[in-house]
Amino acid sequence: MNTTATGVTTSVSRRVAAGREQEFLRWTDAGMAMAGTFPGFLGGGWLRAASDPEQYHVVYRFADEDTLDAWTTSPARKVWVGRGTGLAQDTVTHRLTGVEGWFEPQSTLTHAVRVSAPPPRWKQAVTIWLGFFPISLLIAMFVTPRLSALDVVTRTVVASVVTTPVMVFVVLPFLTGRLRRWLHG
């Protein structure tokens, strides 16, 4: 039983069958909603590969190994996986803890071989700060002033709901791509 304070993420690369993209996305969203009913589920989503429009990366994040394993071995998930037969083919599955997944070289998303270790945590922290500071500043300047009628908890929830996906899906992939040599040097 391995538990971590930072959670565990499973990333599944799937090649979608020709002409079945919308059906695949509905199936994936249903699976995400179903995962959300399980204890320890922290969130998830999907990304379409820029270089290959039939390749998708689906990410599920859980509090720890035990809660992820409870979901992956559940009868409900097995039924959901069965409903997706023929929609897509799993090509690679990764299981990562912490924020290391943001710093994995892009090639590990399509190849099972890991090409390098995650960078030192201090480099990860610097990279996250480089993205977080300007996004936080923009949110503080343009979003939170429009929410002044709300209490501080609600304003903070709104700010974090906006900031988190921007960081995870836009800023961190952009920064880690630009800082690759420094991060892995």
Rank of each mutant, 00 (worst) to 15 (best):
residue 1 M to G: 09
residue 2 N to P: 03
residue 7 G to A: 08
residue 13 S to I: 10
residue 14 R to E: 13
residue 14 R to Q: 15
residue 15 R to M: 05
residue 18 A to Q: 12
residue 22 Q to P: 10
residue 27 W to C: 09
residue 27 W to V: 07
residue 28 T to V: 15
residue 38 F to C: 02
residue 42 L to V: 01
residue 42 L to E: 13
residue 44 G to P: 00
residue 48 R to H: 00
residue 49 A to P: 06
residue 50 A to D: 13
residue 52 D to N: 11
residue 54 E to D: 15
residue 54 E to C: 13
residue 57 H to I: 12
residue 58 V to H: 07
residue 58 V to K: 05
residue 59 V to S: 12
residue 62 F to K: 10
residue 67 T to F: 04
residue 71 W to I: 00
residue 75 P to I: 09
residue 76 A to T: 04
residue 77 R to E: 05
residue 77 R to I: 02
residue 77 R to M: 04
residue 78 K to F: 08
residue 80 W to G: 04
residue 82 G to V: 02
residue 83 R to E: 15
residue 84 G to R: 02
residue 86 G to L: 00
residue 88 A to Q: 03
residue 92 V to I: 15
residue 93 T to L: 02
residue 93 T to S: 08
residue 94 H to V: 07
residue 94 H to Q: 12
residue 95 R to N: 02
residue 98 G to N: 08
residue 98 G to W: 01
residue 99 V to I: 13
residue 102 W to S: 00
residue 103 F to E: 05
residue 106 Q to K: 08
residue 107 S to E: 15
residue 111 H to N: 14
residue 113 V to K: 13
residue 122 W to L: 15
residue 125 A to G: 08
residue 131 G to K: 00
residue 132 F to Q: 13
residue 133 F to G: 10
residue 134 P to F: 01
residue 139 I to E: 09
residue 139 I to C: 13
residue 140 A to F: 09
residue 141 M to I: 14
residue 141 M to K: 14
residue 142 F to A: 08
residue 144 T to W: 08
residue 147 L to V: 11
residue 148 S to R: 13
residue 150 L to C: 04
residue 150 L to G: 01
residue 152 V to R: 14
residue 153 V to A: 14
residue 154 T to L: 12
residue 154 T to M: 09
residue 156 T to G: 11
residue 156 T to S: 12
residue 158 V to W: 08
residue 162 V to D: 07
residue 163 T to C: 14
residue 164 T to S: 12
residue 167 M to W: 08
residue 168 V to A: 15
residue 169 F to K: 05
residue 170 V to T: 15
residue 170 V to P: 10
residue 170 V to Y: 14
residue 176 T to K: 02
residue 176 T to A: 02
residue 176 T to F: 03
residue 177 G to R: 05
residue 178 R to Q: 04
residue 178 R to A: 07
residue 178 R to F: 07
residue 178 R to K: 12
residue 180 R to V: 07
residue 185 G to L: 07
